[in-house]
């Protein structure tokens, strides 16, 4: 497949933006939690699940998205939200608990909701899967050619919601693409200890839909497979189940000692850092020179800094605003 250069550049830019965002959130998360780690302390309190290493699963679908497409993501949502184009300033402000955040400080990093683009996520494993089915059902009612993408981890593939959602989408031939981000570990439990078969993409046959395995953490491979699945859904041919082998470079949450993955595993994982590999490939193929990549990095880093500055300059909500927005 010949991929337009602007798509390759766009995917690289977005990967750079995601990685920088996650790195800066990580720095700021820990900055005021020292010397003794206190999860409730600091500018960013609470759990923090970062997606460094999983950028390819998010950016590969990006060039195929159309306005109005819906995405439901997981408790580790930043990469997908950024790839869909969720307002980075408001997203950062939500993570910092500010009044200007996507949810006025009521949701936090696991509960990011955006109307345009059409994004939601959840702290409950598998919870977004039926929601994506419902979004697709709404698109059918409204007669649009929009589609829904349901992101979930390989751990979620053992939830009932996985089975119920894919069965419904297949039964009703709805425009959904189910995207399994297989980072090999459900917190500490390796996939082989939780899942009866090696590849969740094989489970597609149980619902009579295409199942495709992307065995490399590579944005180009994701681009090709997601493009085909998204086109299929958009033209009314029904759902697909995609599984992408990816890497969670850091712990399950920040502060996770990550002792369940041995040094050899982590060393190999870091050797195949998808941002480094993709950058090298773009340079080798003459698509983006080292200088051009440096310029992209500077531009994307500036966007991230602007979002963080917006967040930090924003006020906290009034405490009693906790009572607002229970009902419309």
């Amino acid at each position: 497949m010949e991929i337009p250069k602007e798509h390759l550049v766009d995917m690289y830019e977005t990967m750079v933006k995601i990685r920088r965002f996650e790195e800066r959130i990580r720095e700021m998360y820990f900055a005021d939690k020292l010397p003794a780690f206190d999860i409730a302390a600091g500018l960013i309190p609470g759990e923090m699940h970062l997606a460094a290493g999983q950028e390819p699963v998010a950016v590969g679908m990006r060039p195929h998205l159309q306005p109005g497409d819906a995405i439901t993501a997981t408790h580790r949502p930043h990469h997908v939200a950024i790839a869909q184009g969720v307002d980075l300033n408001k997203m950062a402000a939500e993570i910092f608990g500010r009044e200007t955040g996507l949810g006025r400080g009521k949701g936090g990093h696991m509960h990011l909701f955006s109307v345009e683009p059409n994004f939601g996520c959840s702290g409950i494993i598998g919870e977004g899967m039926p929601v994506a089915v419902g979004a697709a059902l709404a698109f059918r009612f409204k007669g649009t050619d929009n589609i829904a993408l349901s992101y979930f981890g390989e751990g979620a593939a053992n939830q009932g919601a996985f089975h119920e959602s894919i069965n419904l989408a297949a039964l009703w031939k709805l425009p959904v693409v189910f995207v399994c981000e297989d980072n090999a570990y459900a917190i500490s439990v390796p996939k082989a200890a939780s899942t009866a078969i090696p590849d969740n993409s094989d489970r597609a046959s149980a619902y009579g839909i295409p199942g495709v395995l992307v065995s490399e953490n590579d944005p180009v491979a994701v681009y090709e497979v997601m493009g085909a699945a998204m086109d299929r859904a958009r033209r009314g041919d029904g759902p697909s189940l995609i599984e992408i082998k990816t890497d969670r470079l850091w712990g399950h949450f920040e502060g996770d000692a990550d002792a369940y993955r041995d040094d050899e595993f982590k060393e190999e994982m870091n050797q195949r850092d998808p941002l480094v590999v993709f950058g090298q490939r773009l340079a080798d193929e003459g698509i983006l020179s080292a200088d051009e990549q440096t310029a992209i990095q500077e531009a994307q880093h500036a966007i991230v800094e602007e979002a963080l500055e917006f967040a930090l300059a924003s006020p906290y909500p009034k405490p009693e605003a906790a009572l607002d927005h229970v009902f419309a």
């Binding site: 919870e127 039926p130 929601v131 994506a132 089915v133 419902g134 709404a138 919601a161």
Partner: peptide, 13 residues
Amino acid sequence: TGFIGAAVGAAIN
């Protein structure tokens, strides 16, 4: 779980 969740998704949309 599937169809009540789908109702939520449809309502949002």
